[in-house]
Each structure stands twice: as structure tokens, then as C-alpha cells.
Design a protein around this nucleic acid. Structure first.
Length: 325
DNA sequence: GATTAATGCTAAA
DNA sequence: TTAGCCTTAATCT
């Protein structure tokens, strides 16, 4: 799936284009008809991301919880008002990867005929959003939604006071390898298989190192780096974890160049993205990662062949040279 | 055209 | 630990 950064982009998108609007909610595919009826005709008050979960709060104590899973995605489209409000500008799909496209002649035609299995369709006066392929999609009360959030660890993209220390406490509590722990949403919410591998490389940490053996300082550094690199992901709409000097193409900007949270005023958000001035757009895919999906290829730092092993059903990539053992 | 793997997770075994 | 979810893009015949 889309790791946490995509879900934060989605939350921002929903607030921008649908915030405060009455929405018609339906399930063209039919699998979510009962849930859709619970929120149909209600006002979307706020969208909120916690890790990989998206919470859409509607009037009437209804919260739609969406988890995209491995291949879920949202498509957007609408008129000029809709597009103008959108902070993501051109991309009209947000999911595992973002696709660009035109939203079509909304004014004359309305939303397009749903193609394939559209689980949920949201329609406002100005635009539409289609959800396909989610792992989870349900309507809860605020209390039930809070219970779900309560099970999640801190989200580095929300980075609330105390979050870092809570993460440090949780990861150091268990003897389980830190590589496995970074994927546990109750330890920290939002990191997936790409960020896991990349961040451990960036810190020079052995994925098999037991949480208990990770020093307080290293654990703090790990949190800070995850927060920085994922904030870049929210800005860029893609995962780029290499430092500028480590990219053969030499393109793009340094990691953490514009730091801060997605709601930070300094954030390279709305205007820049819409103007297409995000410099990291130019970073070639083959320059974007240190170890993820680079099995057998030489490490960018030491030349050792990048290793891969299946761990708890997911592929783990690391450099045996830099991340020792 | 068919097959596979994928940035995820849950429930069953 | 494995099957299943249910979609897409890339890779195969």
C-alpha cells in the first residue's frame, strides 16, 4: 500500500476539496451499500490520518474508516472549483502510486460511469471521489473510531508531544528485531516495507538488532529520521530516501530540505505542487532508494551486494556491509 | 492473454 | 505460518 505519507496526502485532499460539504455517498459495487446509507447526505466535517488509516468524520457521529491495504486507491475528479481547491493538483489517483490525469468535463457530465469495482463513491456539488480495492471500509461512531486509534502506535507525521518518547518506549520494550517492529502498527503507525528498509539503512542499523539492544539515543534518531523522510513523502507524493549526493543523476533536493509537518506553513504544499515546482519530481526511480528492491546490486555506500530475506511474510532488504550484524 | 508480485492486514490453522 | 482479500502494473507466453 501506500504507506503513511499517502494517507496523509489523502486526508489533506479530502479536507481541501470536500471539507464542510454535503456528500452523496453510494456503493456502485454494492459491497458497502449499508455503510454508505449511514453517511449519505451528511456533511464531511474533517478528514484525519493516523498511520495508514484514514478517518472521515461526518455529521451525525459517523466516522468512515478506510484502510487501503496493499492495492487500494482513491480517484478524484471535478470542476474548476474542485481542482482549484485540490492541493495535489494534477494527480487524480492516490494509492500505491499516484497517477496524473484530467478530471474530464464534470460540468456537463457529472461523475463518470463507475468502471470496475468501485466500493464507495462520494459526490459533492463540485467533484467526486471513488474508492476501490480497500482492505477495510466501515462506518463507526466517534467512540468506536477512537478505540481503533487507541490500538495504534504514534504516527511520526502527526508527531504530537510525547510521541517520540512513546515510540522509544515501545520499540525498546521487546526483544523482537527492530526490522520486524517497524512494521508493527502498534509500535509506530505509518511505516511500511519501503520506509522500514530505507530508514534502517540510513541509520546504519541491523534489522535483526533486538529492540531491547537499541540505545535510547539511536531510537530517538530513528524516530526523527522517519519523521523527516516521511514528511518528504507527503510533500513529494512518492518515497525518496536517498541523499542528494547518493543519486547518480544528481537530481532533486536534499532529504528534509523543507522540513516540518504536513500542516506546517513552511511545507511545500498547495501552491508549489500545483505550480509543478516540486524539484523531486525529477528524481529517477532508480535513484530513489538505497536498498529497497535492490537485491544483489552494489550498496551505494560500500559496494557490498544488497541482501534480501523474507521476514514474517514480507521482503526485507539491507546492506550486510553498512548494517553489519 | 496469462501470470506474478506489490509500499497490508486479518482470521484461521 | 498460510490463505484470502481483490486491484494494478509489469512481466511472461
Amino acid at each position: 500500500m501506500p504507506e503513511g505519507h499517502s494517507v496523509h496526502r489523502l486526508a489533506r485532499q479530502f479536507n481541501d476539496v470536500f471539507g464542510g460539504a454535503v456528500l452523496a455517498v453510494s456503493s456502485p459495487q454494492g459491497k458497502f451499500t449499508a455503510g454508505a446509507l449511514l453517511v449519505d447526505g451528511h456533511v464531511l466535517k474533517r478528514a484525519h490520518a493516523h498511520g495508514k488509516q484514514l478517518f472521515l468524520s461526518f455529521s451525525g457521529d459517523r466516522v468512515m474508516r478506510v484502510h487501503l491495504g496493499l492495492y487500494g486507491a482513491w480517484d478524484f475528479g471535478g470542476d474548476a472549483t474542485f481542482t482549484g481547491a485540490s492541493s495535489i493538483g494534477a494527480p487524480r489517483r492516490i494509492g500505491e502510486q499516484e497517477l496524473s490525469g484530467e478530471s474530464g468535463a464534470w460540468a456537463e457530465t457529472g461523475p463518470p460511469e463507475p468502471k470496475g469495482a468501485v466500493r464507495v463513491r462520494l459526490v459533492s456539488d463540485h467533484g467526486w471521489a471513488d474508492l476501490r480495492g480497500p482492505t477495510a471500509c466501515e462506518v463507526l461512531t466517534h467512540q468506536e473510531a477512537a478505540a481503533v486509534r487507541g490500538k495504534l502506535g504514534p504516527d511520526p507525521l502527526n508527531n504530537l508531544p510525547g510521541d517520540r518518547d512513546e515510540f522509544v518506549r515501545r520499540i525498546r520494550k521487546s526483544a523482537t528485531g527492530i526490522g520486524q517492529q517497524l512494521m508493527k502498527q502498534e509500535v509506530l503507525a505509518g511505516v511500511g516495507n519501503v520506509y522500514r528498509a530505507e530508514v534502517l539503512f540510513r541509520l546504519g542499523l541491523d534489522p535483526m538488532l533486538p529492540g531491547k539492544a537499541l540505545s535510547q539515543d539511536r531510537a530517538c534518531a530513528l524516530w526523527e529520521d522517519i519523521a523527516a523522510v516521511m514528511a518528504d513523502g507527503v510533500r513529494d507524493g512518492r518515497i525518496i530516501t536517498t541523499e542528494l549526493d547518493d543519486r547518480p543523476s544528481g537530481l532533486g533536493i536534499a532529504v528534509g530540505f523543507v522540513c516540518g509537518r504536513p500542516d506546517d506553513a513552511r511545507y511545500l504544499g498547495t501552491a508549489s505542487n500545483r505550480a509543478g515546482t516540486n524539484p523531486n519530481k525529477e528524481v529517477p526511480v532508480e535513484d530513489a532508494h538505497y536498498v529497497y528492491k535492490r537485491e544483489g546490486r552494489p550498496c551505494r555506500h560500500c559496494g557490498t551486494a544488497v541482501a534480501m530475506a523474507e521476514l514474517a511474510g514480507r521482503k526485507l532488504y539491507w546492506c550486510p556491509g553498512c548494517q553489519g550484524g
